[in-house]
Nucleic acid binder design. Structure first.
Lengths: 291, 291
DNA sequence: ACCGATTACGGGTGCCGTAATAATC
DNA sequence: GATTATTACGGCACCCGTAATCGGT
């Protein structure tokens, strides 16, 4: 089972159709079809069931898809991290979702910079759910994330802080006059349905709310009275200023009954580089908490 | 950077010598030498420094070695887990170091077997430090391990119990008359130096103690008055019976000042199969503790 | 009859092995 | 001079693409 075959299989599994997968891979169907058959013959079992409409995964196929993705990420990570070691020796890439835990991040970076022999830290600003994948495929070495980690992540982490949740509401909405609101109150606003985010796997949930890609869109939609959202407080801080020019505003109200989010510094556990270790050590001393 | 090249590079890094690596890989030196050069040209940096005696790693080379090992493990894991999914559908392989946490393991397996629709659990008995590698390269899906995990493992885990440490001493040694001993007392026995285990990476620590491979050897060496060892209590239970035929005996004494070992059920975090989830859930309910 | 997948066949890339060369102790 | 790594060259395997065939709706 070699790398090329795994890339082929993942493409086929994702497209559900050999022809489209071949197109995506930039090859013709026949070699792809043959490669799949060869893999199945070697395994002695089918990975795909051929339907008139395309292909579907068997149970072993699902296992192979999951494992192949992990393996291909690891392969890509090897090349990326090596290239980075060449181009920026000793540097550590820290992935952060834009706007999250800003002050915490600032403290961490300051403390790290004050460390003797501190390695340079490059920031990778990721969109929505992309910090964890970045860690896995080697674009980043360490990341600031919220618990819980998506899907039993297999990442080592230390807790570095927590932050509570707030509701973003149109500025003139009655609830903005309140000191605090509950999750239920926000959810019970039929004319302000919750926004929908694109999942990491590309699917989008159904619902009446607007589809948003980033914080700016969200802030604008809130200001325009199209949605209300629950976000970490550090994200809310920038929201009102983002829409200054719109002429309307965003109200920020504390959510009283939501458990605070735990912020962690996470990294792929296998064989950790010295630079990451030092950054983690700094984070532990800064936060005063440990894993 | 493809899989074949990574295997080449790992072999060279481990052998420290292109010729020997080629031999181990079953190819001739020239293609290996060329493959390495090609990789270095693509990266635009040296991975190896050529010495008259062989080769040594550069800093990027060390990064690439670490990442390549992880990637190759993941690639191997993909094939192994898929094959297992074909040959034993639904089965979960649990890795255990022979003799560890026996009663805990028994309770876990019994409880799991009593679960409705329980998947079959195959046991993989590993030697010394091999449970974690087995998890990484796909020989196992889940493992019983002691904390701390070796080298920031990147494994998810739940705590399932703990066990204290005991000293194994020759049966007629004066200390065996005691109710309990301290670590310092056992370490201070010059004629009973601690045994040396082969590390997972193949190196062996220096010291006066005998080199042991497994529990049987250890028990025999203790019975013969050549060493004294600190082991988890569950390992000690079998030791006296292992050397029954030797004519001498092994004494087991509680170590009072050693922190109990935490026993965890661990699994590779990325994309966990349903069977593993169910086993973990069972473990959580059995132990009544969580991560 | 169309879409999707598979078999058949020819061409080319690229990897490997043997042999010869260079460099260092 | 022995060991180790590199260059030169020829052969072969493997993979791909085009074209034709099979199967189902």
């Amino acid at each position: 089972m070699e790398e090329r075959e795994m890339r082929y299989f993942v493409a086929v599994a994702e497209e559900g159709n050999i022809g489209r997968a071949a197109q995506r891979l930039g090859i013709a169907q026949p070699p792809l079809s043959r490669a799949l058959q060869l893999m199945e013959r070697r395994l002695g079992a089918d990975l795909l069931v051929r339907t008139p409409r395309g292909v579907e995964l068997t149970t072993p196929g699902e296992v192979f898809l999951r494992e192949s993705r992990a393996a291909l990420d690891a392969v890509d990570a090897a090349e990326r991290r090596t290239r980075r070691a060449v181009e920026r020796p000793g540097a550590v890439v820290l992935a952060v979702k834009a706007g999250v835990a800003t002050e915490l991040l600032g403290r961490l970076l300051d403390a790290h910079a004050a460390t003797a022999g501190a390695s340079p830290v490059d920031l990778l600003l990721t969109e929505f759910g992309d910090s964890e994948p970045a860690l896995r495929d080697g674009r980043a070495d360490v990341a600031l994330l919220h618990l819980p980690l998506d899907g039993a992540a297999g990442l080592d982490h230390v807790v570095v802080g927590s932050e509570d949740l707030v509701a973003l509401l149109p500025a003139r909405h009655p609830l903005t006059a309140r000191e605090a609101v509950t999750l239920a109150e926000v959810a019970a606003l039929p004319d302000l349905p919750p926004p929908r985010w694109r999942s990491p796997d590309g699917t989008v949930p159904h619902g009446p709310g607007p589809l948003v890609r980033d914080q700016v869109q969200l802030a604008q939609l809130v200001a325009l009275g199209r949605t209300a959202a629950i976000v970490p407080r550090s994200c809310a801080r920038s929201a009102p200023t983002l829409v200054d020019g719109v002429g309307r505003g965003v109200g920020v109200v504390t959510v009283m009954d939501a458990a605070p989010l735990t912020v962690v510094l996470a990294w792929p556990g296998h064989g950790t580089a010295a630079g990451v270790r030092r950054l983690v050590d700094t984070a532990v001393t800064v936060s005063g908490v440990d894993a």
